[in-house]
């Protein structure tokens, strides 16, 4: 699915496998906001380049060019 929002900027990253162009050195909190997600919601987690970033560091951690960001949540499973 294409992203519902366009994020202005000139830094390329991948979020959940999709190409995104974002503001250089955007932090995780702001990235989630730009993706129209509530960063304070319960039940989500973020990994950058296969490293889980705790919620407490979402403001501090900036994303670098070509990073692979994964944003996950719980879904129905067995």
């Amino acid at each position: 699915m294409p992203c519902a929002v366009t994020i202005l900027g000139n830094m390329n990253i991948r979020v959940n496998g999709e190409e995104k162009t974002v503001i250089p050195n955007i932090n995780i909190h702001d990235l989630l906001t730009a993706l129209e997600m509530d960063p304070t919601q319960a039940g989500i987690a973020v990994a950058v380049d296969r490293e889980v970033i705790p919620k407490t560091e979402w403001q501090a951690i900036e994303i670098r060019e070509n990073s692979e960001v994964e944003i996950i949540r719980a879904v129905q499973g067995g």
Binding site: M1, N16, G17, I72
Partner: peptide, 9 residues
Amino acid sequence: TVSMRRVKF
């Protein structure tokens, strides 16, 4: 039980 999957935009 639940599974962990990517958020869909």
